[in-house]
């Protein structure tokens, strides 16, 4: 089967004070049709930047300096802005983390949905309107025709995020990128939104890339997981395998820092000491080495992402013994 999205050796650099700083280093991943791929990592690990470059939304000082992005056989990097507009919002779309500001405050929900649809399809206003109502119903909003007439500030955060998802679905996208879609929402609403995404994904057969740092969500939703650290992929594995046998020390540390109902409440939560190093592009060898419990001399040598078994990839010198480290 042909992958929906294929990112190969992507390198992104930001220019600051005339100095180029590489923030994404040879990132590769593929998304198959109907698959939910999750990208996890701390803040500043490059998850969002990688996906923003897929959408062509990098800030002015950011540039893709290497690699390729292939969406259903089209090289996205070779497209002009206008050609990209044909793909964005049509077959590839994105939902942002802050639902509260994702809608234009001066227009009604209906106006915004209808406008987007009429831009991308040859529907007339009436058809677009009917479809918008249908979509709002699909994302579980009660009384959709009333919501169409409402201004965003009269809706709650959860409702707004539902509207956003509804808008994202308006042209039957094949790929939906969800950038921490539930961070601004409270926990019960989070669960509902995730249920919704999963349901829609099944119904419409689209692929989803879920960017998050909530490992609970990943376990619920994802088919495969890519773990990023300091601009590199450090581990890639099917979701079960990642949770059962985390191979990279960083993945393991991430999993240990997740609160768990079964754990003794008196034991303090484990945290990963330190932060993501600042100029991580200047580090040779393992970028996680300064925070790693298993640090050895050989970690200072550059290493590559290598396959371990059929579906698993890991960037660590100790990969042979990876499953066994305690």
């Amino acid at each position: 089967m042909r992958p929906v999205l294929e990112v190969k050796d992507l390198e992104v650099a930001f220019t600051q004070n005339k100095k180029e700083k590489k923030v994404i280093d040879r990132v590769s991943f593929t998304v198959m049709p109907g698959e939910i791929l999750s990208i996890v990592g701390e803040s500043g690990s490059g998850k969002s930047v990688s996906l923003l470059s897929v959408m062509g939304l990098l800030a002015n000082n950011g540039n893709v300096v290497g690699g390729g992005i292939n969406f259903e056989g089209t090289d996205l990097l070779a497209l002009t802005e206008r050609e990209l507009d044909q793909i964005r919002g049509n077959s590839m779309t994105m939902v942002f983390q802050d639902a509260l500001t994702s809608l234009n405050p001066v227009f009604t929900v209906g106006t915004q949905m209808i406008e987007t649809m009429m831009r991308h399809t040859d529907m007339n206003k009436k058809q677009a309107r009917d479809r918008a109502i249908l979509l709002l119903e699909k994302v579980g909003l009660p009384n959709p025709s009333a919501i169409m007439k409402k201004y965003p500030h009269t809706l709650s955060g959860g409702m707004r995020q539902r509207v956003m998802i509804g808008m994202a679905l308006c042209c039957n996208p094949r790929l939906l990128i969800a950038d921490e879609p539930t961070t601004a929402l409270d926990v019960t609403i989070q669960a509902q939104i995730m249920e919704l995404l999963k349901k829609l994904q099944k119904e419409m057969g689209m692929s989803i890339i879920l960017i998050t740092h909530d490992l609970g969500l990943v376990a619920e939703m994802a088919d495969r997981v890519v773990v990023m650290y300091a601009g590199q992929i450090v581990e890639e594995a099917p979701v079960n395998e990642l949770f059962e046998k985390p191979a990279h020390p960083y993945t393991r540390a991430l999993l240990q820092s997740v609160p768990n109902k079964k754990k003794d409440k008196n034991i303090p939560l484990v945290s990963i000491e330190g932060t993501v190093p600042e100029n991580y592009d200047e580090i040779t060898g393992c970028r996680f080495s300064n925070r790693c419990r298993y640090y050895e001399n050989r970690c200072r040598k550059e290493q590559d992402l290598e396959s371990l078994g059929e579906y698993k990839k890991i960037r660590c010198w100790k990969r042979e013994t990876a499953g066994m480290m305690v």
Partner: peptide, 10 residues
């Protein structure tokens, strides 16, 4: 919402 517009290909 401006980012969302860009994403929507407007």
């Amino acid at each position: 919402f401006i980012k969302a517009d860009l994403v929507a290909g407007l």
